[in-house]
Design a protein around this nucleic acid. Structure first.
Length: 200
DNA sequence: GCAATGATGCACT
DNA sequence: GTGCATCATTGCG
């Protein structure tokens, strides 16, 4: 079994966010494997980035981002949606990559079962809250080591060609400073139907 | 202790 | 395109 190691995550966040496109997110739950290709990410970089939760400083909530790379940072937004982030950079520098969308590869039926009422495959994992629900990712996986090959990890996939990678401003951060809102720190695979907001 | 507010998704019109 | 569900975290007192 091949797994992306800590060295993959211990790099500049923009590099990691871009190179995560095309990699496989693997979730092992109830004795089966669910897999999806990462097709959309966002970078949240350090205390100077007003969109990054760590800009508020080191708190119990943001503590994981200050810790070692290759861990998960999972939190609840709007009282109902879990969001999955992967911690990057060296220990001590708070940064993470938000996984915004997946293209389902394996375990489609199990994903459907966790997303009752959804009939279109495209709606299974085309959003940060949706993919967490489809893969059964919640607070119990917070601060999980991604290098163990258990429960949740990353498997190497084929990186999409440079020409198919699009960049743009991040979504849903209206509270951030204008210059941070404008930063093109969202990455996605052009023309992929599982991306949450293909425009821009 | 309490009030405000989101790194969203879905069901409407 | 608009409105709303629902709660952990935060900041203030």
């Amino acid at each position: 079994m091949t797994i992306l190691g800590q060295e993959f995550f211990a790099r500049p966040t923009l590099i990691v966010a871009r190179e995560l496109l095309g990699q496989q997110l693997v979730r092992e739950i109830d004795g089966q494997q669910l897999r999806g290709l990462i097709v959309e990410t966002e970078a949240y970089i350090g205390q100077a980035d007003s969109a990054c939760h760590a800009s508020k400083g080191r708190t119990p909530r943001t503590e994981v981002m200050f810790g070692p790379p290759a861990r998960t940072y999972i939190y609840l937004v709007y009282g109902m949606h879990y969001l999955l982030n992967l911690v990057t950079e060296a220990e001590g520098f708070p940064a993470a990559v938000l996984i915004r969308a997946l293209e389902p590869v394996e375990g489609l039926e199990a994903m459907r079962a966790r997303r009752p009422g959804i009939t279109q495959v495209a709606n299974l994992t085309n959003g940060p809250g949706k993919l967490c629900q489809a893969l059964g990712i919640d607070k119990t996986l917070h601060n999980w080591k991604l290098t163990l090959g258990q429960k949740l990890w990353l498997a190497p996939g084929d990186s999409p060609p440079d020409t198919t990678i699009a960049t743009g401003p991040r979504i849903g951060i209206t509270y951030a400073r204008p210059e941070d809102q404008a930063a093109p720190w969202r990455f996605w695979v052009r023309d992929n139907r599982f991306v949450s907001s293909p425009h821009f």
